[in-house]
Nucleic acid binder design. Structure first.
Lengths: 194, 194
DNA sequence: GTCTATAGGTAGATAGAC
DNA sequence: GTCTATCTACCTATAGAC
């Protein structure tokens, strides 16, 4: 074998990173195998030694990308989470889909994908919901917060003017802040004086 | 001229209807001119006597589809609006994207489209927001409600199990109901005893 | 306004050399 | 594991007949 075993792993990791960014920027349907392989400095034939098909790539991207999202929400204090929410509902996030949350960009295409892909999506999103739940009183609140945030960023991107985007993002951010603050907290000590 | 002038209008209307349904079901990027024209019983060459390009079609679809959405929210009493929200956040809506709200299905593709298309999107969505505002105390509340509803339906479609979908939809529906009921209404008379 | 024919490009995927 | 070459299919768009 001419390549050490860790080489395949590292190439796969680069494919998931580049593939995720391209899919989030241009859409998964518009991301060609050719373009993806060129982005990592390889040619299209090599793609199929890592994934059996393009749809298998989507499944792997969903797992990888939502894993990154989970990391952003996991194990935070209330203050830290507030900062994450502010960053999520910012014009910077709206302006950079390639570096942003995959739920806002890939959900509609995952909805049209295989059951396997949707199972991975559901599993990862439930883990994110469980993380948010630790800052809230009920699971319901976490679902509401996720829906709000994802919807707001996606809609803001489809708008033309900065003014409309900002009023939308600001409205949802204020509501998310209120949802965190209004909770009768079990770990109120860690929050300090706001 | 072999065709009466109203024929062009009616063909255009059929193209917008079929094109909207196909774009919502399969994605606009995956909707080919060939397939669209076949769906209305014509051939691809005829497409360009109605639209100069495929992207011009998207702009027309956005205007047409969001117009339908506006109609669903316009001029309702509080009770009627509650029924609309229930139908929006239903598994039936999640299961039938082709007949559903275009904001949930086309926003990510509109985000990657021309400024003109995004201006149409923004203009129509603001009109929808203004309609919802008449049932709420502030504009902010309408933006929050729209973000929640759109995000919830989109995420529910990307999930695999009916159980997860239902708990998500139910959570957001309860919150939307609460937002309507908790408002100090100016036209409380029309709501009757709940 | 719609048709057929076709241009020129790119898509996903496979075969076999190295 | 990666490369080159290639297959088949489909894409958007145009030209010219009816």
């Amino acid at each position: 074998m001419r390549y050490p075993p860790e080489h395949k792993e590292s190439t796969r990791a680069r494919l998931l990173e580049a593939g995720g960014a391209l899919a989030k920027k241009d859409g998964f349907a518009s991301t060609g195998v050719d373009g993806l392989m060129a982005a990592v400095g390889l040619t299209s034939g090599a793609f199929y030694s890592h994934f059996r098909s393009k749809s298998e790539l989507l499944e792997a991207i969903v797992e990888s990308e939502l894993g990154h999202s989970l990391d952003r929400f996991a194990g935070k204090t209330d203050e830290q989470l507030t900062a994450v929410l502010e960053s999520y509902l910012s014009t910077a996030h709206v302006d950079e889909p390639a570096r942003g949350c995959a739920v806002t960009t890939l959900s509609t295409e995952v909805a049209r994908a295989s059951v396997e892909t949707r199972e991975v999506f559901e599993h990862m999103l439930i883990r994110i919901k469980d993380e948010l739940s630790t800052h809230l009183t009920r699971d319901d609140e976490a679902w509401i917060m996720i829906s709000q945030m994802v919807g707001a960023v996606m809609i803001a991107r489809a708008m033309a003017s900065g003014k409309a985007r900002e009023s939308l993002l600001e409205a949802v951010l204020q509501r998310c802040r209120a949802m965190l603050d209004s909770e009768p907290r079990h770990d109120a000590a860690q929050r300090g004086a706001s």
